[in-house]
Design a protein around this nucleic acid. Sequence first.
DNA 1: TCAAATCATGGAATCGATTCCAATTGGAAT
DNA 2: ATTCCAATTGGAATCGATTCCATGATTTGA
Lengths: 342, 342
Amino acid sequence: MSKSTKVTIQDVARLAGVGVGTVSRVLNGHPNVSADAEASVRRAIEESGYRPVAAAQTLRSRRSNIIGFITDEIATSPHAGQIMRGAQETAWKGGKILFLVNTQWDPELERSAVETMIDRQVDGLIYATMFHRAATPPQAIRQIPSVLLDCFVEDASLASVVPNEADGGYQATTYLIEHGHRRIGYINHVEDIPAQRLRLQGYRSALEAHGIPFDAELVVERYSEPKGGYDGMMTLLNLPNPPSAVFCFNDRSAMGAYDAIRQRGLRIPQDIAVIGFDNQELIAANLYPGLTTMQLPHYEMGIWAVEYLLSELDAVGKDEAAAERSPPQVLLKCPLVVRDSV
Amino acid sequence: MSKSTKVTIQDVARLAGVGVGTVSRVLNGHPNVSADAEASVRRAIEESGYRPVAAAQTLRSRRSNIIGFITDEIATSPHAGQIMRGAQETAWKGGKILFLVNTQWDPELERSAVETMIDRQVDGLIYATMFHRAATPPQAIRQIPSVLLDCFVEDASLASVVPNEADGGYQATTYLIEHGHRRIGYINHVEDIPAQRLRLQGYRSALEAHGIPFDAELVVERYSEPKGGYDGMMTLLNLPNPPSAVFCFNDRSAMGAYDAIRQRGLRIPQDIAVIGFDNQELIAANLYPGLTTMQLPHYEMGIWAVEYLLSELDAVGKDEAAAERSPPQVLLKCPLVVRDSV
DNA sequence: TCAAATCATGGAATCGATTCCAATTGGAAT
DNA sequence: ATTCCAATTGGAATCGATTCCATGATTTGA
């Protein structure tokens, strides 16, 4: 229990009456240690309050037990927090700790962040973006095990995990159909990003799967904020034959759609059903009536990314061929969150 | 530029035709290096693509250039992100990198997180909470320079930075008074937390400072969510002499207050002015009319915390007496964010 | 001009772990 | 009884930097 001077592995060895090699073997769970030796080493560790110095371990073993987490933007939404929570919890369970760097969209900073991580001999690297998109991470990232989170490279040469947007769009639309709706509007985003394209694709395949003809009139494109949602909804309501339900690109635009519907004196969900996307608690749970929406699997992506890295790490050495397999491109499901708007 | 084998300081020394000591001195900006020597070392570093191995530096110098960041909850709100962004950016500028651990309110995990940080010889530690409160961080935190963020210990024995809630309440109330309101309601939170007590205190001193008598009838306590805000607002509106303006404990309760006001057929801000607290963009910017509110200085607290640690770090050794000064207890101002609700 | 102080330098010692190697021990096999 | 092999073990070498120390070169001051 003496805290005054730093206890080293030498001290433990002396106290246990064994060599430092033996202590190290116990510490790392290596084979060929007698039960006796192990017991006395453990006792000595306990008594002395010994804690290994991480830097020394890293220096010699070339493994730091650190996972680097690089992200373009950290502060925009609770989404970022969910990713980091998933990643951090999983890392901790695996005995690893997270290094965090936020690059604020600065490619130079990104490069330098990756290099810093490598200097510190991180075991693996997560490169996360705050919305689903194609990305071009620094080349250096390929020197070590790494994984893209909420983004991907076009040639699929790096492991990647992203939400299954198409399935999300499909599920949302199907849910509306199952509630008897046949005429379903879609207020899409305007920019060409994966979510924009893929959710629409999901919407269309859901219609098709249920034998409902696609009507281009029912799809409007607006910036996905309350104003856009309001405006898009108004456009749909002004149709000669307006929809009885609307799928909104995200919760923020659904917020605007709510306003438009209210302003027309219509009720949700009796007159118009609404479904959103993102499950931004702050909005979806607080709207009245509560917004039914699709949840993005941020927490799960964080978990997956770290688990993937961990599995890569202990594959190293064991199965050299593994390095040659093509990197997984994983889609994670977006669960439906039912509230009262459908 | 050879990348094949790891370049060490020995290689650089050989290449530059100097000793390793000289290389190290150049690297660390130590004095007593001739211009010639420095130039050739720099050239050798450039040519060889040398990058120091962090673990070796840490082992010998006992400084890791890492700052530990421990937090109870990471994912609730954009607030967490703001703190981390401020901390991370400032750390990066100071040549440090952030270790992140999220303890999910688990005291055992907290202990173990602090120990892990110490094992890794972090230069300093930030202990952050996701709302302003009294905290009891693990004892071990006192072994190294550390700072509490958005929390404090009762005896002020650890440095701490928190929002100036009382001033925030004062500013908010004053802003309403300056807009001609004399009868101002306050929908407070119900639980006894610093924000609850201090914002009320600020409200009262603002009234007093402007010669408006305090009327207990105008202060109601509700849970600070939309439902509570709605309910509290209704209570105020039902008063024989209802207020012309209302200060809400936070933006979420303001959201509910909006609903109540609308439901009564009253207009914001013409009939009732509303001011919130927190500046949760997702709510405040998206409500109609935009909610005027007080912003919590999360980003700034993150910056302050790291800057404090950095200054502590280079005070070490220079001025031994500094360690004995009583740790600062800093209050950071909450700026007013003007939108259209007043 | 000479002593003293200052500057510049190379290289050994050091940080604290892991890993490797040679040596010892104790059975099992012949 | 002797040989062989596997299990255990202690301790030296190693990882790659910083730091310290002894030494030689240069300046400064009188």
